[in-house]
Structure formats: C-alpha cells, structure tokens
C-alpha cells in the first residue's frame, strides 16, 4: 500500500468526524482529578504561578489546558502569575491570558500578571526563589513588578501556593529539581503526549501534586470545570484516528504473519 494512501485515510479520519460532531463521554483520571481538587481547595486570594513552557508546536495540547486552568483560577479568585521559560511561548501566552481574562472579567495587575520571558531556565528558577522581582524587574508590558498591586505581598516562592508547569520539554523536571527541592514549592504539570510517561515517577513520590496528560487530560479538565471546549471536541475526533492506527497495526501484522507462513 502506498504511504500516501495511508495519509489520505488519516486525513479522512480527522475531517469526517470534525464535520459531523461526535460526543462520547470522557472519564476523569486520578492525576487530573488531583490537580483540580488541589486548586479547588486553595483559599481565595491565594496565588499560583502558571508557567507557559511551550511554543506553537504544542499549542494544540497545552492551550486547552491553560484556558481551563485560568477559568478555574479566575472563578475561584485564585490569582495567577504567568511566565515562560521558552521565548517562543511569550506572545502565545500573552494572547491566551488576555482572552480568558476578558471572558472572566479578570483585571491585569489585580487578578493576574504576565511577567513574560527570561533566558536561562535554571538561574531564572533559582533567582525567583530569592526574589521574583530580581529576575522579573518589570512585567511583560513594562510595569515595575513591585508596583503591581497583586505583587505587593509577594516576594518569592514562600507566598506561592502552587506552580503549574505547562510543558512540552524537560522544564517540569527542572522546576522539580530546583524549585521543589530547594524551596519546597508545590508543583503540578500539564504536559504533551510525548512526555506523559516520564512524569509518573514524580507523581508517585508527590513531587508532582497532579498531572494533566495531553489532549485527553485537557478534555478531562474541561469536564471537571464543566466548560466543554476544544479539548472535548478534539479527543472525540482523536478516537477515530486511534481506531485507524490500531487497525493499520493489526492489518500490517496479519499481512506480515501470512507472508512469513507462506515463506516457511
């Protein structure tokens, strides 16, 4: 079979269910539930850090998570400090936060602040442990961090209830290694499919308090906050592509074993 025939099958498996919407129920996994419960249990006026450590290549999986997390935080009066260790994620994060803030009526500087990007992941994380404003002297729009109302009582990680790392690379391990170990900062993560498996050892030890796993996790979170959006829509379409790929693997193996039997 020509590889391009497989490509057409894949395209059809995406396009057809997208045009004719399908709604299958999504069950919530324990790691996602844990993160949701953790945020729900935070007292109002708590502050969390949301790290947008990804670029456009991972927005399909991580943007839906970011939106749900921001919606939950704004609904619960949990203040959000957003930042990124990835230069490519800066404009992406800025646009996304503004979109959800407008939707929820959250005020810049009071309910949330976007600090932007700083190069040098390890030193940024360690520097913020001593004094956030020593690393982010201003926010992304240029306002002095110390003059931002919601930052008045915040010096370092001691005043932060949770850090959620939205990651497409190794940033979660870096946050765990430096912020959790050195400063006892509680950490949770929302990650792309590629790195889900490697997060589980940290989940079992409690170094991660919760985990949102790829587009499935995003759909689970949308169900938890009861705001169905792209995550729910896309995981349903994903069902058909996975069925196709499983079918292709099975077909490929049947052909392979038939050929081998004939050769023997």
């Amino acid at each position: 079979m020509d590889r391009r025939f497989v490509y057409i099958l894949v395209a059809l498996a995406v396009i057809i269910p997208m045009l004719f919407r399908v709604n299958l129920p999504v069950s919530v996994s324990e790691p996602t539930q844990k993160l949701y419960d953790y945020i729900e249990a935070l007292p109002s006026d708590s502050t969390i850090i949301l790290a947008f450590d990804y670029g456009p290549s991972s927005l399909a999986e991580l943007n839906p998570m970011a939106k749900s997390l921001l919606r939950q935080c704004f609904d619960n009066d949990v203040r959000v400090i957003a930042l990124t260790l990835y230069p490519d994620g800066t404009t992406l994060a800025s646009t996304l936060i503004q979109e959800i803030a407008e939707e929820k009526g959250a005020v810049d500087g009071e309910d949330y602040v976007f600090l932007g990007f700083r190069p040098g992941a390890t030193q940024v994380i360690l520097g913020m442990g001593s004094d956030i404003s020593s690393v982010f002297e201003t926010d992304y729009s240029g306002k002095a961090t110390t003059e931002i109302p919601m930052m008045k009582d915040i010096t370092n990680y001691a005043q932060i209830s949770l850090l959620i790392d939205l990651a497409s690379g190794s940033s979660t391990e870096v946050w765990i290694t430096y912020a959790n170990v050195q400063y006892n900062l509680q950490i949770a993560a929302g990650v792309t499919g590629v790195i889900i498996s490697q997060m589980y050892p940290y989940l079992q030890t409690g170094q991660l308090v919760g985990l949102i796993s790829g587009i499935l996790g995003a759909a689970e979170y949308e169900r938890l906050i009861d705001v169905p959006a792209k995550g729910m829509l896309w995981i349903n379409i994903e069902s058909f592509v996975h069925l196709l790929i499983v079918g292709l693997v099975v077909a490929g193996n049947i052909i392979f074993f038939n050929q081998r039997r004939r050769e023997e």
């Binding site: 399909a60 792309t192 889900i196 790829g214 499935l216 792209k230 896309w234 994903e238």
Partner: peptide
C-alpha cells in the same frame, strides 16, 4: 510502548488542531 501510545495521541492532536 506506553510512551509511543501517548506520542500518537500528542501528534494526532496537532493534526486535529490544524484541520480545525
């Protein structure tokens, strides 16, 4: 194997986003 299964989910999600 589990990493592969999860990677498939991730890459397909990117394709779905572009199709969307």
């Amino acid at each position: 194997g589990s990493a592969f299964g999860n990677t498939v989910m991730g890459r397909v999600a990117l394709l779905i986003q572009r199709a969307d």
